[in-house]
Amino acid sequence: GLLFTLKDVLYVPETPRLDEPFTVKGKVELFGIPFYAPIWVQARVTYPERWWEEIIPIIGSPTVVEGAMVVGSDFEITFPKGFNREGEFALEVLVYAGPTYSIDKTIIPPFPPVTSEETTFIVAGEVPPEEIGFRDFRILSYSKNGGTPVEASGVLELDVGDKCRVNVGFDHRGVAVSGKYHAAIWQERWWDPHDEILNAEKAFTVPASADWESFEDSIDIVITSKIDPGTEYGLYVKIMAVPGPDIFTGDLANVITILGVPAKGEFR
């Protein structure tokens, strides 16, 4: 239109999935200035044609329309049920000066729009199932008796009698869950690539959350005489006793050095 114009028209999501809510947004301007009087806006979506609709033109592909009376320039129109067909759709946004309604492809009253804009978008695939549970479970650091932490992949030196404090982090979404951490210092053997020499367990609980939330926690492994002095010890932690399989951090190899039993009177 010469007087009215549409500006900043966009739709979300940019690539909708089958049956996913679809929203069209934008602004109506008069002489380049936001128009604040009542105005009627329609979003008209035409489905891609199926083969029988191409053969019988009188049928044509389906068209769906949502509209709203707008006061204040900005408009937002939603198709709450989305679209049940994949392919390239045509989107037309039309602005009318008075009350306007659509019955199938018929406009009532049959007056032309004062301005309009057209584009296309793609509907592809189904909405993936919502991801819930744990993600990004990892070892953040570890320390001697809760002292200065060593970042993951760094080497920590320990004596018999010390505690190896392992700090872990993860994200969680969903219902409240109780489980256990199982932390282990391991050594590679020919019969077992992750032979656990020392381990520890600790119970934990995370609250329910509708969105992803980050958590950090720690677990201590007591260094006993069961482990020999050496440098080729690794570290890992897993989450147990939760719905589904156990959840593992990555294996950190050669990150723990055991010095032995401290001399009498030596500070640890």
Rank of each mutant, 00 (worst) to 15 (best):
F204T: 01
E157I: 07
V45E: 08
T119G: 04
F35P: 07
E131I: 13
G67I: 03
E88N: 11
T231N: 15
W191M: 09
I103W: 14
D228L: 15
D195P: 00
G60A: 05
F248P: 04
R17M: 12
R135N: 07
E232N: 15
G154I: 00
T46Q: 13
E49V: 11
V166I: 13
P245F: 07
P207A: 07
T148V: 12
D195S: 14
T100N: 05
V123T: 02
E126P: 01
S214K: 09
V41F: 08
K105N: 15
E117V: 14
E76N: 07
V127C: 06
T224D: 12
A200R: 08
I108R: 10
T205D: 12
G72M: 11
I258D: 00
P112L: 14
F75G: 03
R173T: 08
G125M: 02
G146R: 08
T15Y: 12
D251E: 14
P149L: 04
F89S: 02
G179K: 03
L252F: 08
T15D: 12
P80Y: 02
V166A: 01
S102W: 15
G161R: 10
A90W: 09
F35M: 06
E157H: 10
P128W: 03
I59L: 11
F79W: 04
T46D: 09
V261P: 06
F248S: 09
A184V: 14
A124R: 14
I55N: 02
K27P: 06
